[in-house]
Amino acid sequence: MGVLDDLVTEFARLPGIGRKTAQRLTYHLLQQPSERTRALSAALTGVADRVRPCSTCGDFTETDPCETCKDPRRDDGLVCVVEESSAVSVLDRAGFRGRYVVLGGHLSPLDGVGPDALRVGLLEDRLREGTVREVVLATNPSLEGEATATFVQQRIAGSGVRVSRLARGLPMGGDLEFIDGVTLTHALSARQDVS
């Protein structure tokens, strides 16, 4: 196998990319100036060499601790637990200004992912420092995400810290008619008093 085949194979390993798309990407790279391809290669090498999980929160970072963990304006009393790094920027944009713990996945015994594969220890370390008032569980609303939230909740049950979970309900700008039944059932059961 030559380098072309190698590249196609590597692309095809990426999520959501099949062999045909991998071939298209490879030929696209061949048609552009070679500096561009070298820049891509350098970026990939940079990511592989310099990006690591932060030893404090588990988020991907080039510096350890990461910028979020170093930021003195954030509230140390509030810790948000998420599955993946990608959730951090989303919650930041939504206005969250506390600290994070990135678990690095969710519990899925079917895929061989057990507690050891998750960075729950980082949360327990944080709780031992004694500054945390509330843990916000912000795992995905999937079966595995919810099981992970239950798992984390059980792990920290004795800590005496308030534990909350993101509300599940209606998206803004939606139309009731087009909301799926599960979401609507949750929204109904978690309805709020307005008076």
């Binding site: 015994p109 079917l110 057990g114 507690p115 079966l143 099981a147 798992f151 059980q154």
Partner: peptide, 23 residues
């Protein structure tokens, strides 16, 4: 849930089984 719980039972992980028992 049962598929996950059975996998956790096979892995012998009581803590994870409990999570899926709840579910």
């Amino acid at each position: 849930v049962i598929a996950q719980r059975n996998a956790a039972l096979r892995a012998g992980d009581a803590e994870v089984v409990r999570v899926f028992t709840d579910a």
